[in-house]
Design a protein around this nucleic acid. Sequence first.
DNA 1: CCTACGGCGTTATACGTAACACTCCGGCGC
DNA 2: GCGCCGGAGTGTTACGTATAACGCCGTAGG
Lengths: 363, 363
Amino acid sequence: MRVGRGDGGHGGPPGAGGTAPRPPGAARGGGVTSRDVARAAGVSQAAVSLVLGDKWRGRVSAAKADAVRAAARELGYRPNAAARTLRTGGTRTALLVVPALTNEFFAGVHTGAARAAAAHDFGVVLYPSPEGIGPAPDPFAAAHTAVDGVIASSMATDAVQALRGGGLPLVMLDSDPADPGAVATVNADVADGMRQVAAHLLDLGHRRITHIAAAIDSWTFTARGRALADALDARPDTRLRVQRAELTVAGGLAAARRALTGPPTARPTALVCDDDVLAAGACKAVRRLGLRVPHDVSVTGFDDLALATAVEPELTTVRLAPDTVGAAGMAALLDALAGRRAGSTTVPARLTVRDSTAPAPGT
Amino acid sequence: MRVGRGDGGHGGPPGAGGTAPRPPGAARGGGVTSRDVARAAGVSQAAVSLVLGDKWRGRVSAAKADAVRAAARELGYRPNAAARTLRTGGTRTALLVVPALTNEFFAGVHTGAARAAAAHDFGVVLYPSPEGIGPAPDPFAAAHTAVDGVIASSMATDAVQALRGGGLPLVMLDSDPADPGAVATVNADVADGMRQVAAHLLDLGHRRITHIAAAIDSWTFTARGRALADALDARPDTRLRVQRAELTVAGGLAAARRALTGPPTARPTALVCDDDVLAAGACKAVRRLGLRVPHDVSVTGFDDLALATAVEPELTTVRLAPDTVGAAGMAALLDALAGRRAGSTTVPARLTVRDSTAPAPGT
DNA sequence: CCTACGGCGTTATACGTAACACTCCGGCGC
DNA sequence: GCGCCGGAGTGTTACGTATAACGCCGTAGG
């Protein structure tokens, strides 16, 4: 990477000689323009643009193309993003809208999306929705950069509302695959994950199960609930109840406490939580009632956050590969921008068995 | 907000009629330019620029200025960021470099920075450093947007290295206030936080203390260690030992296990951890040795992550107000960009006492 | 009465890039 | 011999904004 300007004599007071009034702040890229490259390579600026844009087959000779590339490398040329955007209308940037950065899952999504973007010379700018960051709930304004497309989690409900009909290609995450208005959808296979949880608990002999459900109106959570209900419906000897909970540790605690009231014979032997955070709360509730996890009550989480191995006992949970989700989302968006229609993608989920589940008491 | 294109007939094959070649993707802002506003307000484009840029005192009459503002609002005019950048060289965007998004602390920093930025019509683009996201460890390329300045945590060591001498104003977080090359520094007052921890434990009668120190070579952590050592040095009846730990739950567990080996009378009665994650691991180690937190061993954390209230017992820890740090960092950067030299800022830290600390056994 | 000037406002230009419209030239089919 | 084609380039323009340079008009001072 270059450091200085190259053309010395920058030490004097400004305006002393006939120095051009180069605007300040243009330091990035070293100030090397395509015209500088052209001069160095002995061609016109247009030729530089063609070569570097890979549109030169049959317009520029191979020899000159090589010369251009060499000069560009030599000078450390970086195309000016603003000028390019102004000319083409494209920004090579995507907006990623998530409900909250604090959730590790979305941090992973961002990582995956950013990596996939970088491979195609794209950038990612993040808009975390909670509280709107600024006064106006306008994701575009908050992102502050014009973008070519949007990847949004359906959990960022308010922001997504502002996004629909924005005229930009929209890839939805955690959303109904049949979402109209989305050019593609990408989901972790939460239904399959939940089926694995159900199978695991049934194997362990659990028959009375309570679902600690996140009180968020999002497709992922309804899908989780439906998958669990479907799995247990197939077994007539089971009983499923549902307690809705605010998506916090305290919420999980309260919901689990409600679930566990009643005589021991009617008590659920397993609590299936929509999220590891809820599961952590549920574990606390179990212990506060004088019971033990997993001896008396088994608890399962979802998402496999760092939290899952931080609490005791370590949580049996479902790993969702958030970075794969992010990467797939970006890939779908790039496809859409290229005119290829990308359908809905599902990335696999895998049950991870740890210490919070055990055979049902009395089996 | 505008929705459609206005001029229908977009369904046919491209190039069919004589439709203007308006570049695609320019949808953002509805395509309203300052010239459109000028026409609507009956003034020149230059006047629009002056009024909207608030540089019109004495150049444009108040009446026309009002007309311009009204027309802009009416048409939903949004200045084209690319054109503005091209003209001025400034991007009104800052780059925020953090070690990892997964750490809630930095999520909070981002929130604060973004909010402060929005108030000044600035944007924030994020570069999480781990693994470099892409092949090239070039934060600028990864951010993909030219930026006016950088806010970086010293914990993102590799990326920061690439940033120094980049010619851009750099605000350092979690860093030595005397950092040369930084235009300003912003830190949570970790030393004071640690002093509060020490005072709290001394009050409870603890005299044998082990510091579970993060094995990361960053100013914040050395400052925490030094503050603890200084506080205990003032009390000759105390004993301080140090165990370095990788900054994970497992790392904390291992370090605590090492710390707790030996006869009960030589064992530390309190473990002071550099981070809540380490503290979670330390609690696990205590229990695995058949001891109880806080009855036998007190444990303290740092940062007050969500984790702190998810584990049991809930952690006594130090709250650091990450959003305030982020906001202060952005404020410092904006000051620097405006030519005002901002020094180093310290934001207060506060001990939060919960259930993981208790009187030392035998007091 | 002419000039200087301040309030008001416009015209023109530049930023760096991409793409269109041209030019030039050697061959080639008829 | 002429028109035409395709390769190899160059000249020019437009994108939307900010600002320097210029102009007009009425008034006041000399």
